[in-house]
């Protein structure tokens, strides 16, 4: 289990990043994601990694949270980089390779930022922050209640579905291995994972119905366990985000 990817698992520390208002953290993340996506330059890569590593250091996250990339992913990255190398381009015929490396550094940096948010924010706080963030979209006629309820359920269901999928993958080792078995097994796993996900969805839907329907986005947003405080730490975060955006745009 060591170094496997732990999504949405809170690391219980006493740091300023942990105590930040989750609404501020998710607003910062979304702002950075949106702005940087318009310009995946080396400068953007540097900014993203600076914030991710800086955030992790301030949050005093131990190095052991860092996941080891799956071999499949590493293999895909190597193959893609080789294809980029074959594409040539300036400078010195390395243009394609440099582009691929930049895109990977950019994408993995964004993932690292999201992981830092997940490791420093209790899972139950995320729907509260999302409800607050999506509130303005209500004016555009978007059904924010359904979106937030779906998000809240998805966050709750993710560990269950991941657990079932992991069970299916693990148990597949007991099956006979043939030349075609990786393909057949892949299809079987996909079908079983879909079935498990749908079943979890139905069970959760029934549970929500049984307790009189899902709460509205406003009810979720006003959760008393997630105080809506805005102070100096949140102002510092806003300054960091503003500086990051300015660095990339200007």
């Amino acid at each position: 289990m060591k170094n496997s990817l732990h999504l949405l698992r809170y690391v219980d520390n006493d740091s300023v990043v942990h105590h930040l208002n989750p609404r501020a953290k998710i607003l910062a993340l979304v702002t950075i994601l949106l702005v940087m996506s318009f310009d995946a330059s080396w400068r953007a890569v540097a900014v993203i990694w600076t914030i991710a590593v800086g955030g992790a250091l301030v949050a005093r996250l131990p190095r052991s949270v860092t996941p080891r990339p799956p071999r499949l992913l590493l293999g895909a990255i190597v193959i893609t980089c080789l294809l980029g190398l074959l594409a040539g381009g300036e400078p010195y015929g390395l243009g394609g390779l440099i582009l691929q490396v930049r895109l990977f550094a950019f994408t993995i940096g964004l993932l690292a930022l999201s992981l830092v948010l997940g490791w420093t924010t209790p899972t139950a706080d995320l729907p509260v922050a999302a409800a607050w963030l999506l509130r303005p979209l209500r004016r555009l006629g978007l059904n924010v209640d359904d979106v937030v309820a779906g998000l809240a359920l998805a966050v709750r269901a993710l560990p269950l579905v991941a657990d079932e999928f992991s069970t299916v993958v693990t148990l597949s080792r007991f099956r006979k291995r043939t030349f075609a078995s990786p393909i057949v097994a892949g299809m079987d796993l996909a079908a079983t994972a879909t079935t498990a996900t749908v079943r979890r969805g139905i069970e959760m839907g029934e549970a929500v119905e049984a307790r009189g329907g899902s709460p509205t986005a406003r009810q979720i947003e006003q959760s008393p366990s997630v105080p809506n405080r805005w102070g100096r730490p949140e102002a510092v975060l806003a300054l960091v985000v503003a500086a990051a955006v300015a660095t990339v745009i200007v």
Partner: peptide
């Protein structure tokens, strides 16, 4: 080794009983 889990449906991967048994 064989493991039969509580939610056995997750580990039965073929459409019918006969196919499942002949596969295993």
């Amino acid at each position: 080794v064989a493991l039969v889990i509580q939610n056995t449906r997750l580990q039965l991967m073929r459409p019918t009983v006969a196919e499942e048994l002949s596969d295993l």
